[in-house]
């Protein structure tokens, strides 16, 4: 098949036709000429295949662009990304989009000055001062076997001290479930009106109970094991780590 009306348009003119940029003469020719239309189609096909294979092949990942924007890319990579941004409108648009997004979310990470009214909480780690294994060993006969970690009902209460605050912990069998234990606690040396006792095990919170105004609290129905007890009030938090409950 030959061109119906030679001279046929040059390839670059067919490329303008593909892009919708051709002048009227080329448009009319291609619409009338099957030969040139097929030629234009083959050119468009090749362009389409190349674009499908190569599109954004050299673009940094969104994450690398993000690290560039946050200023934490190594210097050599930052320089390479800067060069790329100078010629890539897609990545430039994505960085602008990231910038806008972070600006939009910035208030989710900030407090206004009028909102800064609450005092910070003091966190104290309590130490065992009475009732632990060391305390028991002192009371044992010289050659008695040492059963490290036995506390609770067999040994009586454990006393923990954090600054001026003393906490007495006693572990007893749970009255309703013999295979379970209960913690009975008493906090002295501070106002316990708004205090709560949080019990954690293996990084999961397993119980939260209120501490009454006299400093008493009870946490029932516990499997034997190692726990962390956190006594939390608006001003002070006391952490009692490695609290052994019914472990022999």
């Amino acid at each position: 098949m030959a061109c119906v009306s030679p001279p046929e348009p040059k390839d670059w003119e067919l490329l303008t036709y593909i892009d919708g940029e051709a002048d009227q003469r080329v448009v009319e020719h291609v619409e009338q000429c099957v030969h040139c239309r097929e030629k234009a189609h083959r050119l468009a096909h090749l362009q389409g295949r190349l674009t499908a294979e190569l599109y954004r092949l050299t673009c940094p990942s969104p994450e690398e662009l993000g690290e560039y924007h946050l200023g934490i890319l190594p210097r050599d990579r930052a320089a390479a990304v800067a060069c790329h941004l100078a010629e890539c409108p897609h990545c430039t648009r994505e960085v602008t989009q990231l910038k806008d997004y972070l600006t939009q979310l910035a208030p989710t990470l900030e407090l206004g000055p009028l909102e800064r009214i609450k005092e910070q909480v003091w966190v104290l780690v309590a130490r065992l001062v009475s009732g632990g294994p060391g305390d028991r060993l002192l009371k044992q006969p010289a050659l008695a076997p040492a059963h490290a970690g036995i506390r609770g009902e067999e040994d009586g209460p454990c006393i923990y001290q954090a600054d001026d605050v003393q906490t007495v912990i006693e572990v007893q069998d749970d009255a309703e479930r013999p295979d379970r234990k209960g913690i009975f606690g008493l906090v002295t040396g501070m106002d316990t009106g708004e205090m709560q006792a949080h019990l954690w095990q293996a990084d999961q919170r397993v119980a939260v109970v209120p501490v009454d105004e006299l400093g008493n609290f009870v946490i029932p129905n516990l499997a034997p094991g190692s726990y962390e007890l956190i006594l939390s009030s608006p001003e002070v938090e006391i952490h009692i780590q490695d609290l052994q409950v019914g472990v022999r």
Partner: peptide, 27 residues
């Protein structure tokens, strides 16, 4: 307290409390 003396549970507990403060728009 030096934060590094706290257990992961202790840190997580405090983080949760402080985040609640933040969402209540308290310091």
């Amino acid at each position: 307290t030096d934060l590094r003396l706290l257990t992961i549970a202790g840190i997580a507990h405090r983080c949760r409390q402080e985040t609640e403060h933040f969402f209540q728009r308290q310091s």
